[in-house]
């Protein structure tokens, strides 16, 4: 029983990472009707950036400079800032090539497979850049917080993991609040519902869409950073591994639904940890992907999704 409780806690902690990635996917799919494969790449970039700052990835010169100016114990803050700035800038570049440029030139971009293919192109670019620069072996990093943890009864809670989970839920909550309450949120939702008429209603689509990309990019970047801090081992393909499972969570919750993605993300985290616990690590793909396949066939709108999203040709 205690072991099971511990596994449930571990599952929810892992689910916290999936939640943010799933929310990133669901925002882009809900608003732009596009399965954005750069999300795994940005997750990985976020993780690799903080790793690089912490582990002399930018060379000994930069590392010495950081040690002298901010001090070794504060390097992780620089890592977080670098990671978030880099993913934001990359998001803007990606937006140009997966959405805006195509839309301007060929009408509704989602009619073609364009954004999907371009986003796969970006995935290849980023992954192989990291492999070229830092190799394909696992990159390990020393957690800036060590093994800090506390106990509730006999169940161990890792402190950084708990903070991460709380942080990711808080971020998602603020996004959901922003969508509901602010003018910007209304503009975003109007794009999601009717992209054509949104322009007529005075919403500047060309300003808002990059914002969607940056928000989604930041979510992945933060998730990547938290993943690196908590799990300390990563590689160029870590984004694929995490994001594909997050996709399963997103579908479970329903495409385009932020709170659905939260529930779905936490659920797949649990499912993964408990499957490993009961069935073993080698078979873990089967329950997760089997679940996704079943949902897609039986109730593709997931738990809380709308039926209109994702039905376009591609």
């Amino acid at each position: 029983m205690e072991v099971l409780l511990q596994q449930i806690v571990n599952g929810l902690m892992l689910g916290g990472v999936y939640v943010m990635v799933a929310v990133a996917f669901t925002l882009v799919i809900g608003m732009l009707n596009f399965l954005n494969f750069t999300i795994p790449a940005l997750f990985m970039v976020g993780a690799v950036m903080i790793w690089a700052v912490m582990q002399k990835g930018f060379g000994p010169g930069v590392d010495t400079f950081l040690n002298d100016t901010v001090g070794a114990q504060n390097k992780w803050i620089v890592g977080v800032v670098v990671a978030l700035v880099v993913v934001s800038l990359l998001s803007l570049v990606i937006e140009r090539f997966t959405y805006r440029y195509m839309k301007a030139k060929y009408g509704d971009a989602t009619e073609h497979a364009l954004p999907l293919v371009s986003s796969l192109g970006f995935l290849i670019i980023f992954e192989h850049f990291v492999i070229g620069r830092w190799g394909s072996d696992p990159l390990t990093m020393d957690s800036p917080f060590g093994n800090a943890s506390f106990y509730v009864g006999t169940v161990q809670f890792s402190t950084p993991q708990t903070i991460s989970l709380a942080l990711s839920l808080a971020i998602v909550f603020s996004i959901s609040l922003m969508l509901k309450k602010t003018k910007l949120g209304r503009a975003l939702r109007s794009i999601a519902e009717r992209p054509d008429t949104a322009t007529l209603m005075g919403v500047d689509v060309n300003r808002i869409v990059p914002l969607v990309y940056v928000i989604a990019g930041l979510l992945c970047g933060i998730a990547g950073v938290l993943f690196a801090i908590n799990y300390t081992t990563l590689d160029a393909y870590i984004g694929d591994k995490v994001a594909t499972i997050a996709i399963a969570g997103m579908v479970l919750g329903g495409l385009g639904n932020v709170w659905g993605a939260v529930v779905g993300g936490l659920f797949v985290g649990l499912l993964e940890v408990l499957s490993i616990h009961w069935l073993g690590a080698s078979i873990v793909k089967v329950p997760i992907w089997g679940m996704l396949l079943l949902i897609l066939i039986i109730k593709p709108t997931g738990l809380f999704g709308h039926s209109a999203i994702g039905k376009g040709k591609f």
Partner: peptide, 18 residues
């Protein structure tokens, strides 16, 4: 349809490999 089919085929491949 659409995105759902991309994901369904993808999930199928993962189940087979698993």
């Amino acid at each position: 349809r659409g995105v759902y089919m991309v994901l369904a085929t993808f999930a199928f491949a993962e189940v087979v490999s698993g």
